[in-house]
């Protein structure tokens, strides 16, 4: 992402934002409320278009690609607040994740795979998404994103509203996914845990990147410690 500016009306939500996520990395995006984290995610998936700057993926300029083309090329998102389809069943939600695919047999195999990963989804596969608990919905959102077989997975606050045990599990899952070769870009409120699993991080403030670096250097950074790590 290069020199991106995004506007919703007159005030820019992102200004001159440049970030780079390399294949195989876990990169976390930190920042206070309304700093532009979700806007960054939406710029990557293509549901907002930058007024300036460009977005690149696997060596191609995808700035003008629509979201479906991006999804078909291996980008997926676990959106903020889950955004599962409340009146589709768990199974239908998962099948929507595979909407861009046509390899029926492989889709079935992936269904089994995500249901093994999240056994709760298997138990509840016929239940409407909206009737599941917050934690279950978060699993569903994650599993749904995986159904597109992404190479690059964006996650916007995947641990929001989860009990502490589940948050730990969530972070383990993220690491496991990364080990299977999926590049991960994750927005987190819990900066400490995010930096513990990330290779690198960016910090946004009022739509600008104010800090960037390896996870280690961010953990050591005094400014970072004061603002986000509570030290």
């Amino acid at each position: 992402m290069q020199d991106v500016e995004v506007r919703y009306g007159p005030v820019p939500a992102l200004r001159d934002v440049s970030m780079e996520i390399r294949r195989g990395e876990i990169v976390c995006l930190l920042g206070g409320n309304a700093s532009g984290k979700s806007t960054t995610m939406k710029t990557v998936i293509g549901s907002v278009r930058p007024a300036k700057g460009s977005v690149w993926y696997e060596g191609e300029d995808i700035t003008n690609w629509n979201t479906s083309r991006r999804v078909a090329q291996g980008i997926a998102i676990v959106p903020e607040a889950r955004r599962i389809f409340p009146r589709l069943t768990v199974l239908e939600n998962l099948m929507m994740g595979a909407f861009i695919r046509n390899d029926r047999a492989e889709i079935d195999a992936d269904l089994d795979r995500v249901m093994d990963m999240f056994p709760r989804l298997k138990e509840r596969h016929a239940q409407k998404g909206g009737t599941m608990s917050g934690g279950e919905q978060q699993m569903l959102a994650m599993a749904r994103a995986l159904m597109s077989r992404p190479r690059f997975l964006c996650m916007d606050e995947p641990s929001m509203g989860l009990a502490p045990v589940l948050v730990e599990q969530q972070f383990e899952t993220i690491q496991q996914l990364n080990e299977t070769g999926i590049t991960i870009f994750v927005v987190e409120q819990n900066a400490r845990m995010a930096l513990a699993i990330a290779n690198r991080g960016y910090v946004l403030q009022s739509g600008r990147v104010v800090l960037a670096g390896t996870a280690g250097s961010l953990l050591e950074n005094p400014q970072m410690q004061r603002a986000y790590l509570g030290i």
Binding site: S68, R70, I77, I84, F85, P86, M96, G97, F99, S148
Partner: peptide, 12 residues
């Protein structure tokens, strides 16, 4: 049910 989330699935 959720137009934006549908686009995230790659639905046109």
């Amino acid at each position: 049910q959720d137009r934006e989330a549908a686009t995230f699935m790659g639905i046109d």
